[in-house]
Simulated scan of single mutants.
Amino acid sequence: METPPPPPSPCTQVDPDLFFPKTDGEDPSLPTPAEQEALAVCAGCPLGAKAACLLKALDAAPAWHQWGVVGGATASQRKAILRRTAERRTAEYVAQLAEVA
């Protein structure tokens, strides 16, 4: 018996422009109303699909090139994730160097 295909992701059912709102210099640390609308659509996505979407966005571009709402996170949130990951990798590398010395 074949497994039926999963239902389409909520983001495929709305205008893609919803996920790339203009922020016009607003506080990047707080989601704008337009970003909140896009985040609400992402909230309806199954966790596995949302995680895969977020990982793809994080792998696809460096922190300075993140924009829009992808994988249930704003560009500012994804930049923070990438920054913390880079800091952790640097700390691990320094610790490894200290062990060798």
Rank of each mutant, 00 (worst) to 15 (best):
S76N: 11
K50N: 09
K56F: 13
P10Q: 02
L55I: 08
G71W: 01
S29Y: 02
Q96K: 12
E99H: 08
A80H: 04
G68V: 06
D59F: 08
P5A: 11
Q66E: 07
C42L: 04
E2P: 15
S9Y: 07
P6L: 10
L97P: 08
D15P: 03
A98K: 15
V14F: 07
R84L: 05
L54D: 10
A63G: 08
R84A: 07
C45N: 04
V69L: 08
P62V: 06
R84G: 04
V14N: 09
P46C: 03
Y93D: 14
V14L: 11
E99K: 12
E26F: 09
P33L: 08
A61N: 13
A63P: 02
A57Y: 01
D27T: 10
A43M: 05
T90R: 12
P28Y: 08
A38Y: 05
Q77P: 03
A61K: 14
I81M: 12
A73R: 11
A75F: 01
A86S: 09
V70N: 03
A63I: 02
V41Y: 06
C53R: 14
E37I: 05
P16A: 10
Q66M: 05
E99D: 13
V94N: 10
D27C: 09
A52S: 11
G71R: 00
Q96H: 05
T74P: 00
G44W: 09
V94T: 12
R83K: 11
E99F: 05
L39P: 05
G25N: 10
C45S: 07
T90A: 15
E26K: 10
P4Q: 12
T32P: 09
R89N: 09
V94P: 01
A86G: 02
A51M: 12
G44I: 07
P46V: 04
G25S: 08
K56N: 15
A34F: 12
A75D: 06
P16H: 10
L97M: 14
L58N: 07
A52F: 03
R84T: 03
R84F: 03
F20G: 04
T12E: 13
S29E: 15
T74R: 03
A38G: 07
V41D: 04
L39F: 02
W67Y: 14
G68L: 01
R88T: 03
A101V: 14
Y93H: 14
L47Y: 09
Y93S: 13
V69D: 02
P7R: 03
P4S: 12
E99I: 06
V41W: 00
A98D: 12
R83G: 05
A101Q: 13
A61G: 02
A95C: 07
T12P: 02
A52T: 04
L30K: 15
A60V: 09
E87N: 00
L18H: 05
T85C: 02
E26C: 13
R89C: 04
G25H: 04
L54V: 06
L55S: 14
V41M: 02
P8K: 11
E2F: 13
C53H: 10
Q13H: 06
W67P: 00
D24K: 15
P33Q: 11
G68D: 06
